[in-house]
Amino acid sequence: MAKSQVTRKITHDEFDPVGTLALIVLYFIVLMLMWVFTYFVEFVGNDPTPFVVA
């Protein structure tokens, strides 16, 4: 039985998961947009809002 096992060793900085990075950047952008929507549109936009009386 032929045994063919190729092993390639890379250094710590050579590991480069671009796909994972892209996915996390995407999640990050979605999160930011959802926060902007929740706070500035859904919350601040729903007048009247109780405010501080000087």
Partner: peptide
Amino acid sequence: YERLWLVASMILIVAFIATVTYGTVGLGIT
């Protein structure tokens, strides 16, 4: 990459706190 998303998540937390602070101080929401 790990450094990158550590920094990004810190920015996110700061941004959350900053918007709520802006709402209270800037917009006067109580």
